[in-house]
Design a binder for these strands. Sequence first.
DNA 1: CCTAGACCCTGTACGC
DNA 2: TGCGTACAGGGTCTAG
Length: 269
Amino acid sequence: MPELPEVETIRRSLEHNLVGKTIIRVFIRNIRLRWIVPNEIHCLNKQLVLSISRRAKYLLLELPKGWIIIHFGMSGSLRLESFEQSPIKHDHIDLIMSDNKILRYNDPRRFGAWLWSNDLASSNVLSNLGPEPLSDEFNAEYLFNKSFNTRTLIKQWLMDPKVVVGIGNIYVNESLFIAGVLPNRLTMSLNKKTIILLVDAIKTTLCSAIEQGGTTLRNFFHIDNKPGCFNQKLRVYARAGKMCYTCKTLICKNKQGQRSTFWCPRCQS
DNA sequence: CCTAGACCCTGTACGC
DNA sequence: TGCGTACAGGGTCTAG
C-alpha cells in the first residue's frame, strides 16, 4: 500500500536506474486498471527518460512526448528485471528499456493507474491537490487556518488530499500517535499548539519512513524486490492488542470511515 | 459547499 | 481439506 514514502523510495531508485535510458517500446497485457490505459502509452517508442519526479502519490516519468503518470493504488508495484526473466501473474505493463532491462508493473487488485499527460499543469488528477507535506507550504499556519471550521474527525481530514497529499492510513495513525492526538478528535477542536505538534509529527514520520525505504506489510517492495524497513518503527499501526512501547497500555483498534484506526488510549488525548 | 458512505478489485487469513 | 466470509484501503463518485 504505497503512500508518500513508498512512492518516493521507488522514485529515487528509478531516477538512479532509468533516467538517461530509452524506452524502446511498451508491452501491455491488461489495459484495465483503475482506468483504461490510454493509447498514447501503448504507442510509445524510442522515448528517452528525461526525469522522474513525484507529486503526492503519483510517480511522473518525463519523456520528450509528454508524461506518464503512475498511481500504485493499493497493490501496484514496479520491478526492474533483466530481459530473460518471465512475467508473473498480474504483470500488466512492461516498459522495454534500451539496456536489456524491463520495468514491469504488477497490480493484483488493479486499483492503480497509468495515465498520459501532454501538459502536467492541466492534468485532471494533479489539479486540486493540496500541498506536499514535506514542503514549507505545509506548516502550522496553513493547517490551523484550514482546520478552523471543519466539522470532521482529524484522522479522516488529514487523509483528504485537498488538505495535504500523500498521507495514507499507515502514516496518519503513526503521526497522530507521535503528536499525542486521538484519531477521533473533532478537527475544529484542535488548538494551535496541537496543530504545531501535528505538523511536526507528520513531517518527522514521513522523513523517517523515507530514510527506512518505506513500510512493507503486504504489497510494497523496492524495484529489486527488497522490502522497506519502517515496519520495525511502527508504534500503533497493525499493533492492536499489543503493548504501547511508551507506556505499556494495550493499543486499541476500531473503524473510522471504513479504515482501520489504531491508537494508544493513554499517550493520545 | 460540505460530509459520509458506497464502490472498484483480488489475495490472504480465519472460522466452521 | 474445503468452503464461505471478512479484510486490506486510495481515490472517485453519489446522495443527503
